[in-house]
Design a binder for these strands. Structure first.
Lengths: 253, 253
DNA sequence: CGAGGCATTGAGCGAGGTCAATTCGAGTGG
DNA sequence: CCACTCGAATTGACCTCGCTCAATGCCTCG
């Protein structure tokens, strides 16, 4: 409202015209309800790579939906080193973990040029009162995050380096496909360092696993560009519940 | 033990007469609202050690509040081994991660004799519509779980064996104190095996760390009985955000 | 009193971390 | 257009923490 329409296409589109709508918060809302939600959403200027959306300890005011680009969230131990707790692609929500604590418990930083939709939480909460579907959707999103974090705990506690990287790649591939991109060939938004941090591995180990995967014909990697050559075996290495990477006639959930 | 009306005392008490009320779901609800909540809660027979409350994949119907005893929740990989995702003490809620998926994504099992309050989720959801405080409380609980899981990710990915055990003990001590028990001296409800599983360590490592902690005068352990002798150093080993275990006003950051 | 499960302790090994040396690649300025 | 710089990525050598395997001790319960 106050700022000029800088990036019309990516930044100022209303929910009901947004390509991400079927994945994002408005899912399961009807057209009128989407309009109501739309009214409380603020759309700011794009964040450049490295800029923070909020810092750990900042007062909790809003949750954010990634519109384009990618974010990472991380906490830090008091002896300095940080743990990345998640990477967030378009349509994914960030900041929900702050709801009960008045302050964000993590920092959120752009890992490439990124635009977000800001959703002031008090307004969202008011709206949730009258829209049961929205309320359920919020709970669904949070419970999904819990499940994912718990899968991550399993990964960190039980899987070896190969399995971790395989799981990570399969997971990313799936998320890309959901968003209409190829799941066979994509560009990693994060550095090897960030990947290692997230997966509980040293950078060097990430690098070594990548080269090993190439030698074994699982993937072809060139810097951040990755091609999944052998999705079947990558998946079975990933170990977790089977995830289909190819779109051969199976039921998509 | 079973002669006295334990069932009455522990199992059939209404929320508003429950000793756990200030910690549990009803927190922040007024007396009338607590009565409303109370009406939808079912209180079943106690679970014996080893019995399951629900299994991974069971249809999601209810969330549960632990009333006495303790539960563990765990997922399993498809190659068989399981990962404990949490231990749940009285007043803590279990099953929230099932909200979005129609099925519980984890199994919940009693690790000692345990009583729970069952809260049918559809009823809770209806009630949440008219009680904004309840709604917020639900979100707070979920967001707290997310934060805890993320702290767990940090532990699993960055901390060594000593730090993990120290963190675990400090965390337990804090939770016991909250519930009115001593934080200096308590009984672990879980086996060494379960502790190791949860913390991503082999049983033998857990054992070794315990003996080392004793040699260093941090704790005294006798089986499952644990006395925290040197809370200051145990805390600083735990590393994370400082948690006060003793109440001598040292505001160390 | 014996059996079976849990906990402890010791010995040896290996996955992955650390340190160090290159190499690659994007951005910058002459 | 090329040379230079600085950070990211790769590769190699070595070492350590915690896992595995195995033996033994301890407690509970029939």
């Amino acid at each position: 409202m106050t700022s000029k329409p800088t990036v019309k296409q990516f930044n100022q589109v209303a929910c009901k015209e947004c390509a991400l709508q079927p994945l994002c918060l408005p899912i399961a809302l009807n057209t009128e309800d989407i309009d109501l939600l739309d009214k409380i959403i603020k759309r700011g200027r794009p964040l450049r790579k490295g800029e923070h959306l909020f810092l750990e300890g900042d007062k909790f005011t809003s949750i954010y939906a990634v519109r384009s680009g990618a974010l990472k969230t991380y906490t830090s131990t008091n002896d300095g080193d940080e743990q990345i707790t998640g990477f967030h692609l378009p349509s994914e929500l960030v900041g929900m973990s702050g709801v009960d604590s008045d302050a964000y418990p993590v920092s959120a930083q752009a890992i490439e040029t990124t635009t977000v939709c800001e959703i002031p939480f008090d307004r969202l909460d008011e709206l949730a009162e009258s829209l049961p579907e929205l309320r359920r959707q919020l709970m669904r999103i949070m419970s999904k995050e819990i499940r994912e974090d718990q899968q991550m705990m399993l990964l960190l506690s039980k899987k070896n380096a190969d399995e971790r990287i395989a799981t990570f790649l399969v997971n990313l591939a799936t998320r890309f496909r959901r968003r209409g991109y190829s799941s066979q060939s994509f560009r990693l938004p994060m550095s090897r360092n960030e990947m290692g941090n997230y997966l509980g591995l040293a950078v060097e180990t990430v690098s070594r696993v990548f080269t090993r995967f190439q030698k074994n014909g699982l993937i072809v990697a060139n810097g951040k560009e990755v091609k999944v050559v052998d999705p079947i075996n990558l998946c079975s290495l990933a170990g977790g519940k089977p995830v289909e990477v190819k779109k051969n006639g199976s039921t998509d959930t």
